[in-house]
Amino acid sequence: MAVSRRSARPRFTLVLLILASLTLITIDLRGGASVPKVRGKARDVFAPIQSAVSSATRPVTDFFHGAFQYRQLKDDNARLRAQLATARAQQIQDQYLLQTNKDLTDLLKLDFIGDIPTVASRVIAGSESNFQLTIVIDRGSGAGVLKGMPVVAGGGLVGRVIAVADHQSTVLLLTDPSASVGVQFAPSNALGVATGQGSGHPLAITLVDPNAVTPPGTVAYSSGLAGSPYPRGIPVGKVASDTPAVGVRSHVVTVTPVVDVNQLSYVDVLVWTAQSSAIPVAPTSTTVAP
């Protein structure tokens, strides 16, 4: 009898812990404020330690990164040397084009963020989980960052803020499978929804009009339709492929993000939420040079 009771006790403990886990999951999925608050406090408490240790251990982590990415780094080096040679040859022409582009931008009011104020932030960590594509930035609610705000960098959309602590925030990247953004193509004005497909993969597009034409190279912008979590006119990506779907009258369209979300150092958080969308943003379908 005693032996039986002893062998049953571990199973009882396991059942208790599983029930506790399921309770925590249920509380979180019901969307209460308690879990984000606890998470935010924990991150605020631990952020200074993480930041200090991260700086001290960067050479070690860079070594591992380099060791496992050696072949890619070698390829990148060769590619960059070739690009540098081309860039030098085109420098004079680029200056002319730059001036022309600036003039046209001023003329057509092409600045895609318009008058929306921004919070400049440094990327302090990559994805904390292997199952969610996020970055951590060094600005939080103390700097005016709110959950849901869009994040941009290098001329295009990066993602949106999904968690905010006092001194840091977590940004869900466009490429995460749970991320989606309403897009509009130029110059056809075709509408669609771009959905992430994981790191290193282009975004998948679901077109509203299956017959819309979106040839490769076409630029996609955030559509900013009512209720959208993004303002209108932020460049999202360029069409990488547009192939007819097999068996149905539709297209399979993929878009390469304009921002390489794996190489981010600094980003801008747009102080904009869907509720504050009265802020005028005036891009048209021809706002950004491809």
Partner: peptide, 11 residues
Amino acid sequence: LFVDTPFGLSA
């Protein structure tokens, strides 16, 4: 506490 996936799932 440090990820934004469902709280308790890793546990």
